[in-house]
Design a binder for these strands. Structure first.
Lengths: 231, 231
DNA sequence: CGCCTTACCTACTCGCCAGTAGGCTTACCT
DNA sequence: AGGTAAGCCTACTGGCGAGTAGGTAAGGCG
């Protein structure tokens, strides 16, 4: 939630192209996330960005190009945030936990990004959804690899790659969905939401109902049922 | 996927109001699901319905009213489908399984309904999202009740109502999301998708990775890892 | 048979928004 | 200083789509 700088009045100060482009992108993400692709108008985006419409067209092209660019930028930012949060040497459950925390952390601090990325991109058809599917694909591969690796650690014969991928898809889906739900129920901190999903997907209802919970390997240790780990 | 009856040419046959309203609603769901709320035009809906625009306005009111009516109708149909699939006397895991099968069965046979219901309704803000949130709320309560009841069956002290509700939210979210994913990957049968989610949420990755799976209490028995149950 | 209600139509208005034409101004470079 | 290019603007067009005005046919019923 950046504080978009206020509406301009009169001529805007001269700025180098790169800076303006950044401002415009920020404005576009903001407006697209609030209004949706169709309802968002180039007039409003230019106004929020503090410039006039022709500048918008001069720098970022048509409305569709602009939107696609937003999606690509935000997707990249998010994947990087997650990658930075995970240590490849840790055991699988810890890696998953770190990934979830990084993911929900990103969403929490970039609600607009997530909104435009997920809800808007997926409800417009066409090339936008593909862009998104692409990112989801990368995320799924990541998790699938984690799972395969994870069963290597155990004594289990072999949990087919295909099956791992399905499960990964389900988990990524659950994450997307929980993040969406969180948008509408923002009172809870990121750590709690992440812990909830971690427990659900790692332990399952079966265990939870029986009273078992997963919790991160001790650091400052946690009281029983709801990991309140930092964001 | 109903075969919408073809485009009319000339004057439409006189029909009683109730019948026309049904036709119009079907057309509206179809068009909204394909194009999204904003891109859908009243002209196109009226054309698909086989009547003229003023009829549309006469019967169903403004575009927004029409959309809201679609959401309500489809939400009701869906909740009924699920309710009909579940027997209150069964043990909790079986109830959950039946519910999931009914849910994915409905989505499979009513892709357009689901699309309009979930993707469209949630990406438009305003009263539409509320309508949807309402339905989700009912679904969550249902699952939460199931969970609470479920831990009554075990010897566990008590899994706070609040926590049950969170988990229910996560599960419902996972279901929504997996259904969405399924829209884009329609090759798999409903039963497989349902089984996948069942395993994920009931067993958890922890157990799955260790080689344990959940499967429905024997009927014609299933070979190991991927429940290919009905629907 | 004629009257009226209900179903249905064609043909507009009007506002909004993507995209553009054409011109002004400020900074930098020689 | 003065040229020039990069940054910026106001003010338009053109099309599309929501919603309406005002009229035509068809079935029912006295």
């Amino acid at each position: 939630m950046h504080a978009e700088q206020p509406v301009r009045s009169g001529r805007a100060k001269r700025l180098p192209r790169a800076v303006r482009e950044r401002q415009i992108m920020d404005a576009a993400v903001d407006v697209f996330s609030r209004l949706g692709f169709h309802a968002a108008s180039m007039d409003e985006i230019s106004e929020v960005a503090g410039i006039s419409k022709p500048m918008l067209y001069a720098y970022l092209g048509s409305k569709e190009e602009l939107f696609a660019t937003c999606i690509r930028r935000e997707a990249t930012r998010m994947m990087e945030a997650i990658a930075n949060g995970v240590e490849a040497e840790e055991p699988p459950d810890v890696q998953l936990w770190s990934g979830l925390r990084a993911f929900f952390g990103f969403v929490g601090e970039n609600r607009a990004s997530w909104q435009v990325l997920h809800r808007q991109a997926s409800s417009q058809g066409g090339p936008f959804a593909e862009e998104l599917a692409d990112m989801r694909g990368r995320a799924i591969s990541l998790v699938a690899a984690l799972l395969v690796h994870s069963s290597d650690f155990t004594n289990v014969p072999r949990a087919g790659d295909k099956e791992a991928e399905s499960l990964a898809a389900a988990l990524v889906g659950a994450g997307e969905s929980l993040a969406d739900w969180w948008l509408d129920n923002p009172e809870e901190p990121a750590g709690v939401v992440a812990a909830r999903l971690m427990n659900l997907v790692w332990m399952g209802f079966g265990d939870l109902v029986a009273g078992d919970v997963w919790h991160p390997p001790s650091r400052r240790s946690e009281h029983a049922s709801e990991g309140k780990e930092g964001v």
